[in-house]
Design a binder for these strands. Sequence first.
DNA 1: TTAAAGATGCTCGAACGCCATCACCTGATG
DNA 2: CATCAGGTGATGGCGTTCGAGCATCTTTAA
Lengths: 299, 299
Amino acid sequence: MLERHHLMILRAVKQEGSLTAAATQLCLTQPALTHAMRKLEQRLGTAIWNKEGRQLRLTQAGEYLLQTAERLLPQFEHAEDVVRQFAEGLRGTLRVGMECHPCYQWLLKVVSPYLKQWPDVDVDVRQKFQFGGIGALFGHEIDLLVTPDPLFRSGLHFEPVFDYEQVLVVADTHKLAAQSQVEPEQLAGETLITYPVEPERLDIFNRFLTPAGQSPRRHKQIETTDIMLQMVAAGRGVAALPRWLVVEYQNRLPIQPLRLGGKGVHKQIFLGSRVADSDVDYLNAFVNLARNPATNDGC
Amino acid sequence: MLERHHLMILRAVKQEGSLTAAATQLCLTQPALTHAMRKLEQRLGTAIWNKEGRQLRLTQAGEYLLQTAERLLPQFEHAEDVVRQFAEGLRGTLRVGMECHPCYQWLLKVVSPYLKQWPDVDVDVRQKFQFGGIGALFGHEIDLLVTPDPLFRSGLHFEPVFDYEQVLVVADTHKLAAQSQVEPEQLAGETLITYPVEPERLDIFNRFLTPAGQSPRRHKQIETTDIMLQMVAAGRGVAALPRWLVVEYQNRLPIQPLRLGGKGVHKQIFLGSRVADSDVDYLNAFVNLARNPATNDGC
DNA sequence: TTAAAGATGCTCGAACGCCATCACCTGATG
DNA sequence: CATCAGGTGATGGCGTTCGAGCATCTTTAA
């Protein structure tokens, strides 16, 4: 069978001009090359080269194999190089899963400097998982999970990366806008806009309304943060979002953040990873960057 | 070192889904594959796959190598296929050398059906040789030589492929046009047009004029047959060409062929080849086709 | 519990590389 | 012109190495 080995001999003979010199290049002896090529010739059923005087002349088959060698050998060498980069953790694809809708804006601030530091790492962000974010981690759909709900379980590692306060957003013109905080019963007559997620997983329900036995008059679900805040600004409802996100949008939209209850609802975002990956440099680098973002804006 | 062998294992495992099945496909045993890949992993310094439950999950390095395998292995297989065709004489490049200017028209008639019969053979026609046609054959510049001057010498084989008569061509209006033959002394006052070749190698000189001690009034050299015959038709000179060629041009130009002397000058064209190539099918096929052309028009 | 997957360690044999030598060509040298 | 020396690839024998197989173990999933 035609092997990489044979292609290397062909290329070396081409480069060096003789079998003996090629053998030196390959750290072998001339008989080794002669034997190898002779065996190949027998298997292929054709001569690779003919001896003419003291030099070798390639047959047409030999010419063709040489072309093949010049094309394939660099690909072998490049593949070994790339794999070495994988081995050293210098290259890879980082698939980040998101289980926290408003975190997308925060993630962008981490990804951007990260891509500069790790030019050979591709970052891929995914938001839909067949068996949830944890399942996606276990199933190797993703390598990192951005989530507010850590699950401390063997095989996984969760690291808090930033704290934020969940607040209620209302339009400037809303009757609650003058208050600095809001109580559960004040939402009884409101339309609540949330991301399309089961209510049990929304903080506004399980840490604010449900404990007080309250619920909003209506519950609307909207995918994107932009549209959601447009609706709020237009007085079509209220929403619950991180304070830093609301502050950012206040430049552009007439909206106000209100503390949820007397103490506010405080949350942590975690980055989850498989412990099996704990020695992958480019992955740890992402977690570190997320914990101490270069463009830390205090949120 | 990364070998074809390893790539084949990767591809087989991908196809079959397990090491054991892959081993069957490759006519090996499961431990053989395990050992081979383990060794590769040690050399590369990274895992190719991890065992998860009873199935293997490729690492990123493994994924990359698999991609490499799917790209490179078909190229190996194709190369072996092509070389097998070379071995069986089904494929090659046939470089034909020409030492006989008017033979080009004849050659086209042979090449055209040949290319249909041998779709995987490329034909290349060359007309300039540093050390002459014979030298080009010996030096592997060409594989076949079309020549009127065979040189029977060890290592070469010449085969007569067609006979023709060399005739003088004159314009219809030429004073000699009425004759059916011409004598050497009748050219003393004429302008003779020939291809740009040394006169000693031109039949009109060495088999007609020189033996009679004659020479033309002027001698012009022109490269192409077309222009040469245009000149003749215009009464600007006479030329010596194969009869069949003149007959062909008579449809388009007012020209006449005249026998050279009482018996005419009869020539043979030979195809020369290296005896070392005597078992190359596509080369023999060309010689056979040349000897019995499909479109044999009696010349 | 069982069947099936991969991992492991040992053994054996084929193949691969090296050494010594041969055969051949080429160019220098008398 | 004959000879010789240096360098090429070819060849055959030998030793080592590497690789494949066998038997067995571990783990997983049905």
